[in-house]
Design a protein around this nucleic acid. Structure first.
Lengths: 147, 147
DNA sequence: AATCAAATTATGGGATTTTATGGTTTTCAA
DNA sequence: TTGAAAACCATAAAATCCCATAATTTGATT
């Protein structure tokens, strides 16, 4: 398996440690960096997460675009400056930096949400609200995706 | 064979395990992931099922289109967040998560319904009711299917 | 067409492993 | 030396594996 799928609600302990869901870890288990990269979402009150190798391919992609695209320059500046590499401990936990937790409004419970090739970390209630919103949007726009 | 055809009614045991019908399993037997991906139907009180490779091609598609199609982005987000990868045990069983069972109103018997390239899982009675409803609709509208 | 044997499939329960979570000790740098 | 981070250890709950058995299908042979 190599996609981040499904959602998992895990608790932060007194030291701020959270288990990254086992299925996310297996999705990462032939990565050379045993951990994840987190950064603040630009669009939502949540944390974005991906593998180090995907971060590297992002770097490669922005390289190819050249130095004259200002928007992209801003984006990659933000992204790379903000990105936090976090290594798993022996039991597969990480400590999410306080400013990321604050940005996502996460208290003592974190919801890991699969997004295919990446994932997000949300405050459970905030995610449910956001998901209801996009379900409404979908019902209104009825995109025609063939699955 | 590679299509999901026909319907099969199987029992859930005390631990919630159900056999995926053998013919569905053979339809999946050159997949690298030995199992299925399930998610809540957006339109019916049932569970949708498909192969992991189909899920992966969806991930590839959303990658290519980037972040500019909001509707499709919403949809794939819903899908990936909701999708449950479930591996077969040695005898070809899976455990359907409790929230999916609740959404489909499934008690101790699950009806696997072939849909060609995908399948659905229903509560038997709920499926029969839905079938009658769509038969009524068909009689009323008489769509003209050209083969 | 009927019957029986063999293979496959569905189902059941106990044993084992993983996983999430908590706490304690050690290390290291400020 | 003191505080934070990392390493280490422990455990309950959940998921998975393993083996056994009942039911069904398939295929062969009358």
């Amino acid at each position: 398996m190599s996609l981040f799928l499904s959602s998992y609600e895990n608790r932060l302990d007194a030291k701020g440690r959270v288990s990254v869901p086992a299925s996310f870890r297996t999705a990462l288990n032939n990565e050379k960096f045993a951990g994840v990269v987190l950064y603040r979402s630009f669009t939502n009150n949540c944390i974005e997460g991906l593998s180090m190798s995907r971060m590297e391919s992002l770097a490669a992609a922005t390289d190819k675009m050249g130095v004259f695209d200002n928007a992209l320059d801003d984006l990659s500046a933000m992204l790379f400056a903000d990105a936090r590499p976090l290594q798993f401990d022996v039991t597969g936990r990480i400590i999410i930096p306080a400013d990321l937790l604050a940005h996502a409004g996460i208290g003592d419970t974190a919801l890991f949400v699969g997004r295919g090739n990446s994932f997000q970390i949300w405050d459970p209630a905030a995610f449910r609200a956001a998901q209801n919103k996009s379900l409404e949007n979908l019902r209104a726009s009825r995109p025609n995706l063939v699955i």
